[in-house]
Design a protein around this nucleic acid. Structure first.
Length: 515
RNA sequence: GCCCCGGUAGUAUAGCCCGGUCAAGUAUGUGGGCCUUUCGAGCCCAUGACCCGGGUUCAAAUCCCGGCCGGGGCACCA
């Protein structure tokens, strides 16, 4: 079992994942299938976000679960890009999605792109017509697209529905040859004209898209006849041997629609499991809304995987959330605090501690005779990671340093505070700067005086900027950090004590991860 | 309007198919305590839920009916 884990995950905390995976309910009729085959089928019109990552993680979790139980299992990645007009694929999305999946520790056994498989869909379409499972509604025949639409309301089949397959095959060839413009001809699956759900009645399987006007980013204008979602999915799921389909509730009617393709072709329909919608309070998971924001898809304000990755969220945190939410058909509402709490558990032991102050205010400690030395642990729970020292030399009997604005505001004349690991001071006056004198040195005295313990930065600290997302805004927190922060490598997550976890992005820039 | 699918503590989830062991488990949150030179983590204690009404039954979170509430679908989108 453990050997099946991608290295990225194995390095971290495989036990907890394993536990979550074991707890997943078994898939229906799992004994019936020799190889449990699952697929993740994104539309490459955008990158993955928290909502679209759910089926990917759950599918992959099931693969691991069954492999762990000694059964064969397969995970297939399939790009569904059969609409160059209204859901135009984003050329960068193919690679971006692959990267998102790899970041999640997901590996796929096979990969397909639907726009490469057009001849397969044409082939099956012809077989469907031959078998009398589909017909063409076309301009200039006794069954125009308008007639077909009417037939769904009246229940009276339009003429081509009962025609000999050869007539419909001929019309289909005319579609392929370009005799018809957009909207002038469609191939329709015969279902049930009296079905209680009107959308199930004789639905469109093939339609014409003018790819000279809307070229496909991968195959350009090579094809004008395109399969619809339900048709291409039915075909691919069968041809790829998919045994179980896990998808959102919004697809439940599609299972009904697709059953007619399976019935006409004499194929066995895969098991479908539908789960409810995932909502994150305060974040939109609507692709169309995210796209219209006009900011890049990996921006730290967005709930895209790329955005979360840049923000400093660990892939395991996303796994944990998804496994907790599971596969129930009910909707689930989680908060970003849930995600941050999971992430905190993961980064807390790794992140070393440093001091930084936001909006610095100067403190002058007067009448200091000897130098002061602070010895700070890199991480209080792991003393073996070592310490660093900050030495403050008095100049003319004075030591100057910075504290943060919010701490400054809580001070009054006479307040006693402890500068962490350094000294206890008493405030003498408070103007643009704080004048203070040494009150005592040891921690016990600070406790006795009920002195708050605050972080500080020496006068020669490093200027820093922390970019802190708040809703759709990014707040720039400007401040100073102790010089040891210069040694932190780019990309590393550390904690600025009493402020929060931050990720270093350049010499003096940081991203606020969460508190 | 029509057609599906749901409703267990603040949130998430287990239990429901196969009624009793459920005066409902777990996680997280919240309150309190311990620990700790930040925060967090950790440990201990506490808090808190079966949508409502009928029915079946010796017995209902679990089965049936009705209501209410929520979600989804009703495309030549996926």
């Amino acid at each position: 079992m453990l050997s099946k884990w991608p290295e990225a995950l194995e390095e971290r905390r495989p036990e907890s994942y394993r536990k979550g995976i074991e707890d997943l309910p078994p898939l229906p009729n799992d004994n019936k299938y020799e190889v449990i085959t699952l697929r993740f089928a994104p539309n490459p019109d955008f990158v993955l976000h928290l909502g679209s990552a759910r089926p990917a993680i759950i599918d992959y979790a099931y693969k691991l679960k069954y492999e762990g139980a000694g059964k064969r299992a397969k995970f297939i990645l399939r790009f569904e890009d059969t609409d160059p007009r209204t859901k135009r694929p984003m050329p960068e999305a193919y690679d971006a999605i692959r990267e998102d999946l790899r970041w999640l520790g997901i590996r796929w056994d096979e990969e397909y792109i639907q726009s490469d498989r057009m001849s397969i869909y044409y082939d099956i379409a012809k077989k469907m017509i031959e078998r009398g499972g589909a017909y063409i509604a076309a301009k200039g025949t006794d069954c125009t697209p308008e007639d077909w639409k009417k037939s769904k309301v009246t229940g009276v089949p339009c003429k081509n529905r009962n025609e000999d397959p050869s007539i419909n095959l001929e019309l289909f060839d005319k579609m392929l040859e370009g005799h018809y413009q957009e909207g002038e001809a469609v191939m329709v699956i015969k279902t049930d004209l009296k079905h209680p759900d009107p959308s199930v009645r004789d639905w469109v399987a093939m339609r014409i898209i003018d790819t000279t006007k809307y070229p496909h980013p991968r195959v350009g204008s090579r094809y004008i006849v395109w399969p619809t979602y339900n048709f291409s999915v039915s075909i691919d799921d069968h041809l790829m041997g998919i045994t179980h389909i896990l998808r959102a509730q919004e697809h439940s009617v599609n299972t009904v629609k697709q059953s007619f393709v399976y019935a006409h072709m004499g194929w066995e329909q895969p098991e479908a499991i539908h789960f409810g919608r995932l909502k994150i309070v305060g974040m939109t998971l609507s692709k169309t809304r995210l796209k219209t924001l006009g900011i890049k898809w990996d921006d730290i304000r967005l709930p895209t995987l790329a955005g979360l990755r840049n923000r400093g969220i660990q892939p395991e945190a996303i796994w944990n959330i998804m496994l907790q939410v599971g596969v129930k058909p009910t909707d689930a509402t989680i908060t970003s605090d849930n995600l941050f709490a999971e992430n905190r558990k993961l980064i807390e032991p790794k992140a070393n501690r440093y001091m930084a102050v936001i909006n610095p205010v100067k403190v002058i400690i007067d009448n200091v005779q000897e130098r002061l030395i602070a010895r700070l642990p890199m991480h209080p729970s792991y003393p073996e990671r070592g310490y660093r020292e900050i030495i403050l030399e008095p100049i003319n009997g004075k030591i100057e340093l910075f504290i943060g604005r919010t701490d400054y505001e809580k001070l009054d004349k006479g307040s006693v505070i402890r500068l962490m690991e350094l000294v206890n001071i008493e405030v003498l006056s408070k103007d643009d700067v704080v004048m203070a004198r040494i009150h005592s040195k040891d921690l016990e005295s600070a406790r006795k005086a009920n002195a708050p313990i605050i972080q500080w930065v020496p006068i020669n600290g490093l200027p820093i900027t922390v970019n802190r997302p708040e809703g759709m805004k990014i707040i720039e927190d400007k401040g100073m950090a102790e010089r040891a922060v210069a040694q932190v490598s780019i990309g590393e997550i550390i904690q600025f004590m009493r402020y929060g976890f931050v990720k270093k992005t350049s010499k003096d820039d940081f991203i606020y991860v969460h508190d």
